[in-house]
Design a binder for these strands. Structure first.
Lengths: 211, 211
DNA sequence: AATATTTTTAAATACTTGTTTAAATCAAAT
DNA sequence: ATTTGATTTAAACAAGTATTTAAAAATATT
């Protein structure tokens, strides 16, 4: 298998199509024929480039998991930022990521149900809270009386929950605004999540930071 | 088709098994043979009592959607409760519901992606925000300067997001506490969500209610 | 230009899976 | 006891689906 321009292009075409279908329909709901159609290629090519549906899925899933989490964890680990700055940056950057890939959270956390054991091996160090700078800063601030004395897992849960909700429950948002066209709906939704950023930040800091 | 004790029992057995499998694996990921095995019955019985996999799924899904949302909306519509009381009661009751059915949110919101149009018909009145008493109370309070001036959709998004997050990302919680046994993990998780209740309530009221 | 290698295709294969059939079992009614 | 109807079962069916095969086409190498 060489790696000239044509190869890259077909392999990329397959991955792009696979990503689109998998993210919307999940592993079980996706037929490789749908992917082949979306990519305008022969089904046998899927097994030529990737060895099976499962291997192709794994490639997509790994990237999706990284896309969903590594950006946020990079910010939470950035030692040049204060606790408050981390929250502001994480919320803004995460929502920007999700605007580009609204299906990401539903896809990842749904598939994760059946693969908890798998990721334990794959992300050995990155996702452990105790080593994250954000947590150290928060615990130190709690000790100083600067921040409210709760367990750091609640901070993450609240932040992450408020960030993800609009995307996970996007169908509910569509339901609330039924009657609108798909384009109008999209504009409204983007407007909503953009406004949501500041509210999430304010709600977190207002509660966590003792004035 | 009579309705004696035996009938009820088998039909219930099927529904119970179907619920368990569907909630964990979704529609596409569920094989009717898995359901039959779980219920210890013949596959043909599924089509005898329910006419198809899809009809059986619809029965399960409708109940799941109601279980996830109608309890909360009943509270948000209870005119005997103040705005603050509604938040307190909704958070507590919702988390209690989810403790019993942790897969509910992932299941419902994932399947909803492919069925937005369907539910529009099924829940015509219940789920419209504008008619909900909670929203009226909040908007009135905003006008009086009692509550912070944000759009009510953000209030729902924050509350719902913080409530659901532990359950949607339960796999992440398991990841954080790897090494523990399944029983220990369950105890820890329940402890976490129980503590989470008060934090969600405090965070919401602390931000929304202007003192 | 000829050969070898990689890429692509159409078709076949083997397996899964939802549904149906037709017979067997069971329960109630006459 | 026999008949009737409902329930259950094993087996067959038909459609769908992931994967493989073997040949063709395209590309690179000599």
């Amino acid at each position: 298998m060489t790696a000239n321009a044509t190869d890259q292009s077909t392999e990329e075409k397959i991955k792009e199509a696979a990503r689109k279908i998998f993210l919307q329909k999940g592993f079980a709901g996706t037929k490789i024929r749908d992917i082949a159609d979306e990519a305008n290629i022969n089904i046998a090519l899927l097994n030529y480039y990737f060895r099976s549906k499962e291997k192709l899925f794994d490639a997509i899933f790994d990237e999706a998991l990284a896309e969903l989490l590594s950006g946020m964890f990079a910010i939470l680990n950035d030692k040049s930022l204060s606790f408050e700055e981390k929250i502001i940056k994480a919320v803004n950057s995460d929502i920007e990521t999700l605007k580009k890939s609204p299906f990401l959270p539903n896809f990842v956390f749904n598939e994760l149900n059946s693969k908890v054991d798998k990721i334990v091996q794959k992300f050995p160090n990155v996702l452990e809270f105790d080593n994250v700078h954000f947590v150290e800063q928060f615990n130190a601030g709690v000790a100083q009386g600067k921040y409210r004395n709760i367990h750091h897992e609640h901070v993450y849960a609240c932040m992450q929950g408020m960030i993800l909700q609009p995307f996970i429950e996007k169908s509910m948002f569509c339901f609330q605004h039924q009657g609108k066209s798909a384009e109008e709906l999209e504009v409204l939704f983007i407007e909503f999540v953009d406004n949501h950023k500041q509210i999430v930040i304010d709600m977190l800091l207002n509660y966590l930071v003792i004035r």
